[in-house]
Computed example of a mutant assay.
Amino acid sequence: MSPPLPPRVRLLWSASSVPLVLLIVVAAAAPVRPAHNGILAAADSRTAWSVVPSASGGTRPAKGGRPYFYAEGVPGAVLKDTVSVVNPGAKALTVELRGADADNTRGGGLSLRKRSTDTGAWITFAERKLRIPPHTRADVPFTVTVPGDATPGDHPGAIVASGGGRDAAVRLQLRVSGPTLAALTVERVRAEGRHISYDLVNRGNTVLTPRLTVRADGVFGEVLHRGPRTLPVELLPGRRITLTEPWPDAPTFDAVDITLTATAGGGARDTAAGSARFVPWGLLAGVAAGLAAAGGGAFWWRRRVGGLRGRSARGPDGRTQQIDPDNELTGAVT
């Protein structure tokens, strides 16, 4: 990160310096691009305020500005950088800064935890609450104090600014020096209708971008094969997410074995399998209903015929005669 900065907020504005004000307005008016994977809630219009990494700070300066903060240090280190809040509007803005821990949503998106216990709790600002005049950028130094017992690996977080009725955040990628492990597991593979559902779990201490291969084999051979492709998710250490793989052309009647293989950088790899039985229950129900109706009719016929054959009647001469059911049913008289 950048060298130590004075523990004060620097307001870059001047009523007597028109060129400087114009320069700041032009820079702030440009829409801010979302940071890595959408954690940054960027400005919604050309007059909305924004929060961004300072242009000159950090260990990885980028041409045109840094998209996010990056910091790396050993346990016990105190890392320094500067965050900028830009107010291009015509009114003064009051903003409050705080640190936050990054998290995964259940579906794999990125979110922020309400209560910080990791990176977000290690951030200290030179000034947490500040009032920014119109057409002004405020640069706020901050430190990240890595605990002495912090575990090695990635500790994703963010700096959040709240003001003007909305929140905006910029990501902070913190890595604590030490051994790293890339480990990934695939779990709970199951077919659900016209899609395959599965869980991915990051068992290591680095952020992973998984790649997935899907294969399904039926009774008569392969019915699905999708080569390795990068998933649009970023799996944080220790997190579990549930994803679905669309399968619109799933078989109608088959017994299928499904195999999912996930890989990621650092040698992470795992394979899991599941099975599914595809049965056209609607068609089978219709056939079963038809067979039941046919069986019921046949049973009724047999009962009817059997009952008539067992009946007798007394003839004109007073003798008992057996009734022929075929003649009676057809109306024939003998």
Rank of each mutant, 00 (worst) to 15 (best):
P3G: 07
P4G: 08
P6Y: 04
P7F: 07
L11F: 12
W13Y: 11
W13V: 14
S14K: 04
S16T: 15
S16I: 14
V18M: 13
V18K: 13
L23M: 13
V25A: 15
A28Y: 03
V32W: 06
D44E: 15
R46D: 11
T59W: 10
R60N: 03
K63D: 15
R66K: 14
P67N: 13
F69C: 14
F69K: 06
K80F: 07
K80V: 06
D81Q: 02
S84T: 15
P88L: 14
G89A: 15
A92N: 05
T94E: 13
V95Y: 08
N104K: 03
G107L: 14
R113W: 00
R113E: 08
S116R: 01
T117G: 02
T119A: 03
I123S: 08
A126P: 00
K129L: 10
L130S: 09
R131Y: 00
I132H: 06
I132E: 06
P134M: 11
H135D: 12
V144G: 03
T145L: 01
T145H: 00
G148A: 00
P152Y: 00
G153R: 01
D154N: 00
P156T: 01
A158W: 01
A158E: 00
A169E: 09
V170D: 15
L174W: 02
V176L: 00
S177E: 10
P179A: 04
L181W: 01
V189T: 06
E192Y: 04
G193M: 10
H195M: 07
Y198G: 08
L200H: 05
R203A: 07
A216Q: 02
F220I: 02
R229H: 14
L235K: 04
L236D: 06
P237W: 02
G238C: 11
R239I: 07
R239D: 14
T242V: 13
T242I: 08
D249G: 09
T252E: 05
F253T: 06
A262Q: 05
T263M: 07
T271C: 03
A273C: 04
G274S: 13
S275C: 02
A276R: 04
A285S: 11
G286Y: 04
A288W: 01
F299K: 06
W300I: 13
R303G: 13
R304N: 12
R309T: 06
S312N: 06
G318D: 04
I323V: 15
D324V: 02
